[in-house]
Design a protein around this nucleic acid. Structure first.
Length: 201
DNA sequence: CATGGGATTGACT
DNA sequence: GTCAATCCCATGC
C-alpha cells in the first residue's frame, strides 16, 4: 500500500481501511472498525499542536501511532494526511484470521468475537506495543494491506466516535455493517455514512 | 515540579 | 448499571 493512500483526507482513509488486513507477526485480521482523528477537532491528540507525543501525527503518513491509554492499554493508529497535517485513523476492531491460537493465549479468551473487539483488546491479541510507535505500515513489523481490488468494499455504517468527550458531533466512526466483530453493538438508529469528506462537517 | 485527565477494560453490585 | 487500575504527558505554577 503506497504512501499516497495515507496522504489523503483522514476520513476517507478511515472508510477505505475497512476490509484491509492488519498483520503483526503470525497474527492477522480484517479491519472492521475505524475512527478518524484530525488536528482541527478537539478529540484529536494533535489538537494541542506539535509536542513530543504528537510529533508522529504530524510526520510522514503511513506510519504507526501507538500510545498508552488509561495507563494500561496500547492503542494503534495509522498516520494519515500529508506530512505537516496531524491526523490518524484509530483501528478499533478486527475479524481474526491468522494466529488465532496465539491471540487466544494472549487474551486468555476463547471466543473469536472477543479477541480483537476493541482497540486495547486488538493490540493485546496482536502483540502490538508502544515500541512499534512510528514504525512503517509497509515493510516493517506491522503490515497493513488493502483488500484486493476485485473484492467489493463492504457496506459501512457511520456514527459518533467512542469514548471521547469533545467533538462528539462528528460521525467519524466507521464499521463494516454486518460484522459481528465490532467493539460494541451498533446504536439503534443507524446513520448512513457520508459520501463527501467530513472535515469540518 | 505537581496535577489532572484520558481514543479502555474487566470485575463487581 | 458503577468503578478502579495505572502511567504518560500536557499544562500550569
Amino acid at each position: 500500500m503506497s504512501l499516497d493512500f495515507y496522504a489523503r483526507d483522514v476520513v476517507q482513509v478511515a472508510r477505505e481501511l475497512i476490509g484491509a488486513t492488519l498483520r503483526h507477526g503470525e497474527c492477522s485480521g480484517i479491519v472492521v472498525e475505524t475512527e478518524a482523528y484530525h488536528f482541527s477537532e478537539a478529540a484529536c491528540h494533535a489538537y494541542v499542536g506539535r509536542t513530543p507525543r504528537t510529533r508522529v501525527l504530524f510526520g510522514a503518513p503511513g506510519r504507526a501511532y501507538v500510545y498508552r491509554s488509561y495507563g494500561i492499554h496500547a492503542l494503534f493508529n495509522a498516520v494519515a494526511e500529508p506530512e505537516g497535517v496531524g491526523a490518524a485513523v484509530l483501528i478499533r476492531a478486527l475479524e481474526p484470521r491468522e494466529g488465532i491460537e496465539l491471540m487466544r493465549a494472549r487474551r486468555g479468551l476463547e471466543a473469536l468475537e472477543g479477541l480483537c473487539a476493541g482497540p486495547g483488546r486488538m493490540t493485546q491479541a496482536l502483540g502490538i506495543g508502544l515500541e512499534l510507535n512510528e514504525s512503517p505500515l509497509e515493510g516493517g513489523a506491522i503490515e497493513l494491506e488493502l483488500p484486493p481490488a476485485d473484492r467489493p468494499q463492504p457496506a459501512l455504517v457511520a456514527g459518533p466516535r467512542v469514548g471521547i468527550t469533545k467533538a462528539v458531533e462528528l460521525s467519524w466512526r466507521f464499521c463494516a455493517r454486518s460484522s459481528r466483530f465490532v467493539s460494541r453493538p451498533w446504536p439503534k438508529n443507524l446513520e448512513a455514512p457520508r459520501r463527501a469528506s467530513a472535515i469540518g462537517a
